[in-house]
Nucleic acid binder design. Structure first.
Lengths: 337, 337
DNA sequence: TCTTTTTTTGCACACGTGTGCAATGTTCAT
DNA sequence: ATGAACATTGCACACGTGTGCAAAAAAAGA
């Protein structure tokens, strides 16, 4: 009588098929020993009753829940949402399921998110932003929760980091500006101060200093379009106006470009060259045609899921390095050669 | 010895605190009867061991998993990702957790997504796009999975629909064009043919017909920026070029605007007025300043989560109507009055 | 046909938790 | 001091599943 209670269980199916409950369990367990005959009887009964294996109970006994937590802030941001799309797709393809946990920008909420992941016995947590406190990281390790840290540093045991060549990309950006004939350089960033942002900032500044070039530098607010607008206004109001701005994020770059065009009537790239980072979808829109560095989201997703599937192949901390290739469009003078 | 196995359980905590396992369970169950003294002993031991309640086991026994599935396609789209952000936030605030399931645009993948939701004994599934087949919908009902359908029609028992005043908004768009002095009207939409898109299309066309006005009508591809570009080219190549385009989606509108500006050198709103729908973030960017209708995402999220919390207050099918207010910017001539 | 090998099946236990029930300990009014 | 009312605690069962183990059945070999 699975009728009006809640959900139908293996016992119900077994009763209807006239077999033991174990036979039902084995039918839905790949590689278990069931005869063709009972298998088909079970499948028929399951179909008729609308039976679905309870993954919670299965995870309870087999210690494999198939759950992976995605933890991050600013989930609706273009780059972040794209990354989430890729990760969920690849996790599903590998038979897992993603739970999505929203944090604000404070690190402490990352900690409570991780605790939530532990409560649901997630196999792993992918941290997209913010840094777990090291004590929590230890807690995760003790509870068998593996950690994937994207664009963070300072990993602990039982976790991977996935990192990009941020500093290198920033150096390429600088070289591109110089090749285009730009001389009054500027750097625009947010105040978020995440490791990847810092690498981009420092990469750009260090290279400029090595070449003895001054850089106009502004940092402002969160990483958003509005911050970009404000950054653009601040930079372009300066006495000697920059003719090239490296923005540590495409969102900032879009804001800077709009400020230049609509509030200073400048033409891009004639009056101002701009380079961003992330290659969000809007960067390819005609209104921006932004030269930028492409986040290798597919590769990041593949690397993360592959590492999860590797079992305990490498138990120590690991670092995976990926590269963000330049995507040349029309926001910098010349053709990039 | 919780040491090197997997995770620490209530039994371990009980042993360390010198109490029964039931006491541990009660300590972490709000409203259960525990003395101050044992409670603190338990909490101390739990802290020391890094104990986290196993929500899977808890859900198994109490039939309340706290899991809600979000199911949809095009997860990285601005409107979709914003909705997901709101839903995850509100679900978390109500003590639940969201699992995110990606589908492609075919309805059959929605069905397998729902089965996945059942397997994890989700309390409810929020369907953001695509339509579950009615047999699957029945399966959900039988397994106690409640359904929230956003901008779909044809609901079954034990489910809510959340719908917008799409047709009404389309009529307002038409009226705004006329008030601005536009006469050569056009409609741009994708071929997705979802209920909300159809309502917007038909609302616009029906109102135009009632007033005896012809409408240039194009439908093309999926709902994306690229489709908008192509739609813009098609419409603006016509012999008598439209001076107003209602786009059923902001993404389409952005494409149409860029086509008009960068491929036909038209000025907006002087040569062409544009109205969109959704109010994605980019609509407010200076490059677009798009007049559009705001998706009440916060209200949608609140309505969905409230309905979940209502228990079985209303068991029959329900429909919640929300309105999308107009957001007046600068892509239509005049000031909207 | 009889023995040996292999496959299939059911029983029973385990996973980690919530909770009814009875027993025990505590408070309070009389 | 005594009984009643009450708070606290432990036992044991239940939730739905996977799987080792032994029994049974089937297949294979002689």
């Amino acid at each position: 009588m699975p009728g009006r209670k809640n959900s139908v269980s293996a016992k119900d199916v077994a009763a209807r098929a006239g077999v033991s409950r174990a036979a039902v369990s084995r039918t839905f367990t790949p590689g278990a020993s069931v005869s063709k005959e009972t298998r088909s009887k079970v499948l028929e009964a399951a179909e008729a009753l609308g039976y679905q294996v309870n993954h919670l109970a299965r995870g309870l006994i087999s210690r494999k829940t198939g759950i992976v937590a995605l933890i991050g802030a600013d989930l609706a941001t273009p780059y972040r949402s794209e990354l989430i799309r890729v990760l969920t797709e690849r996790l599903q393809a590998s038979g897992r399921v993603a739970i999505l946990i929203n944090t604000d920008r404070s690190d402490s909420t990352v900690d409570v998110a991780l605790q939530q992941a532990i409560r649901y016995r997630a196999e792993a947590a992918v941290v997209l932003s913010g840094m777990p406190e090291s004590s929590i990281s230890e807690l995760c390790h003790r509870n068998g929760l593996r950690l994937v840290l994207i664009n963070r540093d300072d990993a602990h045991s039982g976790s991977v980091q996935i990192r990009l060549n941020d500093a290198e990309a920033a150096r390429v950006a600088l070289a591109s500006f110089l090749r285009a004939g730009c001389r009054r350089l500027a750097l625009a960033s947010s105040q978020a101060g995440t490791p990847s942002l810092l690498d981009r900032e420092n990469g750009f500044l260090a290279e400029a200093e090595k070449r003895g070039l001054p850089v106009l530098c502004e940092r402002l607010g969160p990483t958003s379009y509005e911050s970009g607008l404000a950054l653009g206004e601040r930079l372009l109001m300066r006495a000697e106006r920059p003719d090239a701005v490296f923005c540590t994020t495409d969102l900032l770059a879009c804001g800077v470009m709009d400020a230049a065009r609509h509030r200073f009537s400048l033409s891009i790239p004639n009056d101002l060259s701009v380079i961003g980072f992330d290659d969000i979808e809007q960067a390819s829109w005609d209104a921006y045609a932004l030269t930028t560095f492409r986040q290798p989201v597919e590769e990041i997703g593949a690397a993360a899921v592959d590492w999860l599937s590797d079992g305990d192949a490498a138990d120590g901390p690991r670092i995976i390095h990926l590269t963000a290739p330049m995507s040349w469009r029309k926001s910098v003078r010349g053709n990039g050669k």
